[in-house]
Write a protein that binds this DNA or RNA. Structure first.
Length: 910
RNA sequence: GCGCGGUUAGCUCAGUGGUAGAGCACUACCUUGACACGGUAGGGGUCAGAGGUUCGAAACCUCUACCGCGCACCA
């Protein structure tokens, strides 16, 4: 066994183990394995992406689940990969080209540009994969996939063709969300609403029949007046009833437009009159359709005014145009007023510019299997964690609209639609012949492929199964769990469910074989200390690599997991990561302490000696299995009461951890492990066991060390999914098992007999620990420095106490501990009462100080006693509360009154 | 407008019917045979507010206030 160095150095230990795991192919899944499958597909990060804290959280959770499953004996597949991120990558490469070469994609042309994207991707893409490796992710890298892999891309196109043939994909000229910066259509989900300050302009439209009389129309967008092809009022609005069917003059360019009545108008808003601009507003478009209005487009694709009839505005940017339009109207006396106004405007999620509703020819998908997709979640064939996301999902599905899937970018899966020019028609024009298929049809004519590519999410929605080959799919699909952020519940989670149900990649056609995953765990969203979302532009996102450098990957992982509540936002504070690092150091040091006292003597068999013969078997509450079993192995000897206590707590921890995994409550698991290791094991058990460890009695020493080994072995295994590197290092250095900890079985409950004897011993330990704390408190209050040994006395009738004298003295740092039920102390000796009896600190203190202290203590106990007695004198409480609660209160009453008696006696002597 | 969360110590958060908790920060003592990235002890809370259910409410119900998120509307 190698020595443990004085300090733990994650920077050398972590990469060392990761490399070894890779070299051993430990993460590679075997599709032929007989073991039960456990599988996760990684939400593919963008090829342009770099690791953020969000990724760290997300992937740590996946790694934890994968590693735990491996220890449970599953055949584990954690399938990693990347997303080509159409718009995002194209934008990144364009930016790079502009900066480095001063050229645009149009300078290069489609083919050349795509070559440059691939070049760029090889050079700068996929950094995140290396970063995930540094985090310790146990992905099967041999199966790493990419949404642009040839076979994957082919599958995407095939799906398109199929859906087209089934009539679910269609091409149509409709209002879509146009991103003037990226110059592409977007789906509804890619538009986010933001409040915007602006003005509400009241524009005067002259009534044709009644020259000199005007209608006032409120609008936030005067720059679109030139595209007005009507005004509308509510049919029941009496103010304007007479005008319906007549015409007004559009202010600029001056032209007659009709007044129509339409239910969609809110009479309460503004003046109750809406200017109808079918080309630039979704609602207006619908009104326009109903009343057969013309559609005039006055904006260019990049958001500039296109209206030669009003030369003052023509060519201006849309926002500049808005200002100028208002000025023009004002100059012509057609602006009644303008008032400040705040409304919500849709912004492009990616470009962060206001989107422009635009009439455009695009490809749409009518979502398949929406009802079924809702049903599988509502019937819990798919479980959402936390559950409240079900409602969000339901609400979205119920209001679902067709999905605009075509994008006017070059980088992506090019739409497999082909057009043949017929005479005098444009490629995209209506008269051209269309063919949908992966390859252009043979035969005469020049078939030209559609210029558009598919929404990136149209490829991601196949991710759960298209990443797997046939054999892998047979073994590992449906996947066990999906771990992802709630922000992509619509983008990705819902659509993957649709895809699974529609394309049926499973073993059979049964629904349960085709859902993409059984569980979905939605992670928290990480915010900064002020509660703001982490973002590049705010610069409030710490680089996880720096954090790994400072605190180790294990420290980062553990620190983050301990504070990550399920389904709520996390406020990130580096302090929390520091705690993770400190915890790793604590673990390291307690292991080092163990190792200083010689090598592990326990055989693997002995390490499992408490294990039940069958995991199904419940701990017996009659027998004394643990002791019997352990007595077979000399190393354990007779367990000390402290050993029994720590083993019992270990059992409780194992149970809590198991429940935590069932509920996906990672913070609970982390916290329980933290508390058990730091407090129960290090602070109490190890300190108490030092008596035996430093004892001359070899059998006692051996027993204590054996228990330490047993617990340490359980600890590192429980902790391994969270902190893979340090636990592997300790597993190996302490010689706790042969082979890698990754495939060691998880610890099971120690078979402690749950009998009266154990209960009594545990009670005694609790009493001792309480007494120790009371004694330390006396020491602190009497201002005896903690490095100075002090003399204590314990008045107790407890019979078993004598054999614990040395340990109690050690825990108190006592020079001497007198155990005597009749011990007489001088006046003014500080005294405290516990369930064991009274503890006294033999030291002279000022009488008045001690009086004061006792008075306070008495007051405290009196208050407690009053509360308890109040309860017990309440007949309803005694009759109706559960028995154990009443009993507990009775005990407390007894204990408090005894304490009070003792304290008062001591007080009277002063 | 509809829906979903949240409000507990100075800070970050646990706690879902029975003695209000942790970490950090703070105060005091301590480099004692693993650990100062540490140990010991301590101070600090009308559990957002009001009402209700209950023997008993931080927890369950109703309402209110404030914060956050999603969806819809937004001329």
């Amino acid at each position: 066994m190698a020595e443990l160095s004085k300090t733990y150095d994650p920077r050398t230990v972590e990469p060392k183990w990761y490399q070894r795991w890779i070299d051993n192919h430990d993460f590679e899944a075997d599709a032929n394995s007989k073991k039960k499958p456990f599988s996760i597909v990684m939400p593919p990060p963008n090829i342009t992406g770099v690791l953020t804290l969000g990724h760290v959280l997300n992937n740590s959770i996946q790694d934890i689940l994968a590693r735990r499953a491996r220890m449970q004996g599953f055949e584990v597949l954690w399938l990693p990969g990347m997303d080509h991120a159409g718009i995002g990558t194209q934008t990144a490469v364009e930016k790079w080209l502009r900066k480095n070469e001063g050229i645009t994609r149009h300078d290069l042309g489609r083919e050349k540009f795509l070559e440059r994207v691939l070049e760029w991707q090889d050079k700068h893409g996929g950094i995140i994969i290396q970063q995930l490796k540094r985090l310790g992710c146990s992905c099967d890298w041999s199966r790493q996939r990419y949404t642009m892999d040839e076979s994957y891309a082919r599958a995407v196109l095939e799906v398109f063709v199929d859906l087209y043939k089934n009539g679910l994909i269609y091409r149509g000229r409709r209002m879509i969300n146009w991103d003037p910066a990226a110059q592409t259509a977007l789906s509804d989900e890619e538009v986010v609403n933001k409040p915007q300050r602006g003005n509400l302009y009241y524009v005067r439209y002259e009534i044709v029949d009644q020259p000199g009389k005007f209608l006032e129309v409120a609008t936030t967008r005067p720059e679109t007046i030139m595209a007005d092809t009507g005004v509308a009022v509510h049919p029941k609005d009496k103010r304007y009833a007479k005008l319906v069917g007549k015409s007004v003059w559009r202010p600029m360019p001056r032209e007659k437009i009709p007044v129509v009545a339409d239910e969609a108008i809110d009479p309460e808003f503004g003046t109750g009159i809406l200017k109808v601009t079918p080309a630039h507003d979704k609602l207006d478009f619908e009104i326009g359709q109903r009343h057969k209005m013309a559609v005039i487009d006055v904006l260019t694709p990049d958001g500039k005014i296109n209206c030669p009839a009003v030369p003052e505005l023509h060519g201006l940017d849309r926002f500049e145009g808005r200002k100028r339009a208002a000025e023009l109207l004002e100059a012509r006396g057609l602006l009644a007023k303008a008032e400040p106004y705040e409304n919500h405007v849709g912004f492009s999620d990616r470009s962060d510019v206001p989107i422009e509703p635009r009439l455009s020819e695009q490809w749409f998908l009518k979502y398949p299997k929406t009802k079924e997709a809702l049903a599988v979640v509502k019937k819990h064939l798919i479980h959402f964690f936390p559950r409240h996301w079900e409602k969000v999902y339901e609400q979205w599905i119920k209001n679902i609209q067709d999905w605009c899937i075509s994008r006017q970018v070059w980088w992506g899966h090019r739409i497999p639609a082909w057009y043949r020019r017929s005479q005098k028609s444009e490629v995209r024009g209506r008269k051209s012949e269309i063919y949908v298929g992966i390859k252009p049809p043979k035969g005469p004519g020049n078939w030209i492929q559609d210029n558009d590519t598919l929404d990136t999410w149209f490829s991601s929605w196949l991710w759960a199964y298209e990443t797997m080959d046939r054999k892998t799919r047979k073994k590992f699909y449906p996947t066990s769990v999906l771990v992802t952020g709630p922000d992509i519940i619509f983008f990705w989670v819902a659509r993957m469910i649709f895809a699974g149900l529609e394309f049926k990649p499973g073993k059979t056609t049964k629904t349960e074989d085709n859902i993409p995953f059984h569980d979905v765990f939605f992670t928290s969203i990480i915010r900064d200390k002020q509660g703001r979302k982490m973002s590049k532009s705010l610069g409030n996102s710490p680089d996880p690599l720096d954090l790994i450098d400072k605190y180790g990957a294990d420290g980062l992982r553990f620190g983050l997991m301990r504070i990550a509540p399920s389904g709520q936002d996390i406020r990130f504070d580096e302090k929390q990561i520091e705690e993770g690092r400190n915890f790793a150091t604590k673990l390291w040091n307690v292991a080092r302490f163990r190792q200083m006292h010689g090598p592990t003597q326990l055989t693997p068999e002995e390490l499992e000696c408490f294990k039940h013969s069958s995991s199904k078997e419940r701990p017996s509450n009659t027998g004394q299995r643990a002791e019997l079993e352990c007595n077979k192995h000399s190393s354990f000897g007779e367990l000390s009461i402290y050993a029994i206590e720590v083993l019992a707590r270990l059992n409780e921890t194992i149970d809590a951890v198991e429940k935590g995994y069932r509920d996906y409550e990672f913070n609970t698991i982390a916290q329980r492990l933290y508390d058990f290791i730091w407090s129960d094991y290090c602070d109490w058990y190890v300190e108490a066991a030092k008596t035996e460890i430093f004892s001359a009695d070899e059998s006692k020493k051996k027993s204590a060390l054996a228990v330490m080994d047993y617990v340490l072995s359980a600890i590192v295994r429980l902790l391994h999914p969270f902190m893979p590197h340090i636990t592997e290092e300790l597993w190996s250095l302490l010689g706790l098992g042969s082979g890698s900890i990754q495939f060691a079985s998880l610890p099971v409950r120690a078979g402690l007999a749950l009998n009266k004897d154990t209960a009594n011993k545990r009670q005694l330990v609790a009493a001792i620990y309480e007494t120790v704390q009371a004694g330390r408190n006396l020491r602190a209050q009497a201002r005896v420095p903690s490095n100075q040994k002090a003399k204590f006395a314990l008045r107790s009738k407890e019979r078993e106490l004598a054999r614990e004298q040395e340990t109690i003295a050690r825990l108190l740092n006592a020079s001497e501990l007198i155990i005597d039920p009749n011990f007489q102390a001088g006046a003014g000796t500080p005294i405290a009462t516990t369930v064991l009896g009274e503890i006294l600190l033999i030291v002279d203190v000022d009488l008045s100080t001690e009086r004061e202290r006792l008075d306070k203590e008495i007051a405290k106990v009196e208050a407690e006693l009053r509360t308890v007695e109040g309860k017990l004198s309440n007949k309803s409480f005694v009759d109706r509360a559960p028995k154990d609660v009443v009993e507990l209160n009775r005990q407390r009453q007894k204990s408090f009154s005894e304490q009070l008696k003792k304290l008062k006696e001591a007080r009277e002597k002063l």
